[in-house]
């Protein structure tokens, strides 16, 4: 009588252990969180052959933010704390009234928002820091200025579409961007404090 030989099954119970080990390895070596940060776009390098044109900007259209090597802040000639900067910037960007000290406004038609709105098309927030300014302060200032724009845009988005700005679709975001254009300009740093 021929006995049929059974092929012995490979024991697979250790497979779970092996894959658990792999799993734990990957959990430890990888990171879930992606980097976050403030995104900015640098201005392109000027052509050295091209003659530089001086652009005259009316003083009322400029908000000048200076940060010195001791991390002290000066806005339009007055010393200011970084905590006040956001409100000051919001006051400057918002296009309410015909205040002589605030930037000029121009009526711009924005069909997505349904009508014509006053837009401060010529305003500039000019940021200048010293070579001795700390990076921490620089980011804090940048953050406050970006926050001022973001809050105004968010408020408008809530008013018009009942949604925060980040959840709007591209066209609507663009419409609100036209209403509050971000015009941050960074001057090349100078060294006043002698620090390198």
């Amino acid at each position: 009588m021929k006995k049929e030989r059974e092929v012995q099954e490979i024991n697979a119970s250790s497979m779970a252990d092996i894959s658990f080990l792999l799993l734990v390895f990957f959990l430890v070596t990888t990171t879930m969180a992606t980097d976050e940060g403030l995104s900015r776009v640098l201005p392109p390098m000027k052509d050295p052959n091209q003659e530089q044109q001086k652009v005259d900007i009316k003083p009322r259209n400029i908000m000048e933010v200076l940060v010195n090597s001791n991390d002290k802040l000066m806005v339009n000639g007055e010393e200011m704390d970084v905590l006040q900067l956001k409100n000051e910037a919001k006051r400057f960007i918002s296009t309410n009234g015909n205040d002589e000290t605030l930037p000029e406004v121009e009526p711009v038609e924005i069909p997505e928002l349904g009508g014509t709105f006053p837009v401060a098309t010529a305003h500039v927030i000019s940021l200048q820091n010293d070579r001795g300014t700390s990076y921490e302060k620089y980011i804090a200032v940048q953050n406050e200025l970006v926050a001022a724009y973001d809050e105004l845009r968010d408020a408008k988005a809530m008013e018009k579409f009942r949604k925060p700005y980040s959840e709007l679709d591209e066209d609507k975001q663009k419409a609100i961007k036209t209403l509050y254009p971000q015009r941050l300009s960074e001057a090349e740093p100078k060294s006043y404090g002698g620090a390198k």
């Binding site: 992606t34 976050e36 940060g37 990076y135 921490e136 980011i139 953050n143 973001d150």
Partner: peptide, 10 residues
């Protein structure tokens, strides 16, 4: 540094 208006790098 710390900031609040962060954008994710996708």
């Amino acid at each position: 540094p710390e900031a609040s208006q962060l954008v994710k790098l996708e």
